[in-house]
Nucleic acid binder design. Structure first.
Lengths: 185, 185
DNA sequence: CCTTTATGAATGAATG
DNA sequence: CATTCATTCATAAAGG
């Protein structure tokens, strides 16, 4: 697997410093290692240390590390949430009467679009995504869907490992994953 | 990061599966309809529903819908911004002092910072590019440039026309450098 | 062929 | 934290 672009141009190399941080493969690798290792939300101190250590591979700032973890975790959860939602819909929420799906209606062209604002509200008829997720997370279904979500989920954070570990985090071929979309070559 | 496809070219062994999502005309039509109808940023739930509905026209996944809206809006905005910029330059308002332009998003400076939770405040030395745009969008000039897009631009969203200065001259130095102790948890 | 354009995808950076 | 924005990357299609 070829690695990331690594491209020599643009920022990465630490040009005048106008662009955004472009992590080197080494940095990414290390960051991911830490993340998988369980570090999900580094403290200020940790961020500093990490920054220092990674700086030997390329220009990097504390905020980069900070954001990296923020984003990584967020996207991780986001994916999870989406899957849950999909499953949830597919399993529990059938349309009231076997009809297609309730909320969405043909929003044809602009012509008669009934005051956009309305539409938006119309669609907004969903339940708070966050709460929904929370609730759903408590439902056993979660187990199912976690199945294909590789075991990036580590122990630390929140509840102490004591509780339980749904799956043996066998460090499967992490990466790639995604919604199994169109298997990337 | 988790991936780094980089797939050289055509997956040799990759199943004929397919690379990325290729929306069918029907899907595109519906998506555009919704977009024009006012839906610019669907919620997670909406994405799921849309996905379900569009799936009868062809293979599609939640993330595709998500990205579609994301990109569509972004590009829409980008074009708008460009036009505005052009008009802006061509007409009135020259930079206060022969300087170039108000950097739409020049983030710079901000050196590393140790603080944790509040790190953000530390590097928060840039100017709000988004707001700038917003302000610009509210300027009457907008009307002009919208001309050639026919009604594609939905009439909803944002605030109603109002007269106001094009640019925030409030560049009040943010030199506030007091960092006292920032009691960090 | 090689550039240019359009667009799906990914991710760094913010904001609230 | 969840969401959103801006940029950038990777490709496929279109045009010279």
């Amino acid at each position: 697997m070829t690695s990331v672009p690594v491209k020599g141009t643009t920022s990465g190399g630490g040009v005048g410093g106008g662009s955004r941080w472009c992590p080197t493969p080494e940095q990414v690798m290390l960051l991911e290692g830490m993340y998988r290792g369980g570090l999900k939300t580094p403290t200020a101190t940790q961020i500093q240390q990490i920054t220092a250590r990674l700086s030997i591979y390329g220009k990097i700032q504390g905020k980069n590390v900070f954001y990296w973890f923020q984003n990584h975790k967020a996207r991780d959860r986001q994916k999870l949430r989406k899957k849950l939602m999909a499953l949830y819909q597919q399993h529990c929420l059938y349309p009231p009467h076997g009809q297609s799906f309730p909320p969405l209606h043909q929003v044809r062209g602009v012509e008669d679009a009934p005051s956009c604002k309305k539409i938006i509200n119309k669609w907004k008829v969903d339940l708070p995504s966050y709460q929904t997720c929370k609730l759903m997370c408590e439902c056993p279904l979660m187990t199912m869907m976690m199945m294909d979500q590789h075991g990036t989920t580590s122990y630390c954070e929140r509840v102490p490992p004591k509780t339980l570990q749904l799956f043996p985090v066998t460090t499967t071929a992490v990466s790639e994953d995604d919604q199994s979309s169109t298997t990337k070559p």
